[in-house]
């Protein structure tokens, strides 16, 4: 379990300012839900957190150190749910372990556990083009978890998945979060999803994104949550209003 600190991160592309002085902390084992309108810079933020993109100013710290792929392990679930088409589901899930040279026996054991945990075991020998969008999301999650990451970053993994499946996937994310206790940053533009999952909600403004509000849900809305409870609906309403302010 690791603590993730984001301190005054700003990022521009050419003259387009995308992230503006973003700061927040993800406490070890907590699930941070980042809520922001479409196009505000959510993906850019996660890319900076993962180290793929460099911040122009400010810094990202994992356990008070700069992120380093040798020292830290980052599990990243991309918005596109990209898997390598030439690898089966199982081979995709195990790619990170292959890179690290983990021996066959312990990685196949881990694959078994993970594929069972995300409910993909029956489909382990399928190629990505043979599975559904929901299954791709599960496979990407399993691939990210396989390396036993210090930090798990999820970029709207369920954005293009029907509401019903989405609900089950969200339940699974909660189960997996409880089981593996990964420090997680989950990004979404879907308010309900964030209220359902997050220990802490970070609301971003529209581009250039900055933190508009930080809201700790762990005490006011203990898990497991019912999406029909009054508290849930109230918080959802407040957050929707906050986001709507961004467009008026």
């Amino acid at each position: 379990m690791a603590e993730l600190n984001i301190v005054g991160v700003s990022k521009s592309f050419n003259n387009l300012k995308v992230l503006n002085n973003i700061s927040f902390t993800a406490k070890p084992g907590k699930l941070i839900g980042v809520l922001g309108p479409s196009g505000c810079g959510k993906t850019t933020l996660l890319r900076v957190l993962s180290g793929i993109e460099k911040a122009d100013s400010g810094k990202v710290l994992i356990n008070n150190e700069a992120p380093d792929t040798c020292k830290h392990k980052i599990g990243y679930v991309p918005q596109s749910l990209t898997l390598y088409p030439w690898r089966t589901v199982e081979e995709n899930v195990l790619f990170g372990l292959e890179i690290r040279g983990t021996d066959k026996k312990s990685s196949s054991e881990l694959a078994y556990n993970l594929l069972k945990a995300v409910g993909l075991y029956e489909f382990k020998d399928y190629y990505p083009h043979e599975i559904s969008g929901g299954m791709k999301a599960r496979a990407c999650l399993a691939r990210a978890l396989a390396i036993d990451p210090d930090v798990l970053l999820m970029d709207e993994p369920f954005a293009n998945i029907d509401t019903q499946t989405r609900y089950y996937l969200q339940l699974e994310v909660l189960k997996i979060h409880q089981k593996y206790k990964k420090t997680t940053v989950f990004v979404s533009h879907n308010v309900e999803e964030i209220v359902f999952l997050a220990d802490t909600v970070i609301v971003l403004t529209r581009r250039p994104a900055t933190v508009k509000k930080e809201l700790d849900l762990s005490t006011i809305l203990p898990k497991p949550r019912s999406i029909f409870s009054e508290e849930f609906l109230n918080i959802r309403k407040n957050l929707i209003q906050l986001i709507q302010e961004e467009f008026t």
Partner: peptide
């Protein structure tokens, strides 16, 4: 695709 490369990088390749 750049994304194929980035995924491998985040996994430490």
């Amino acid at each position: 695709p750049l994304e194929y490369v980035e995924i491998a990088k985040t996994l430490g390749a």
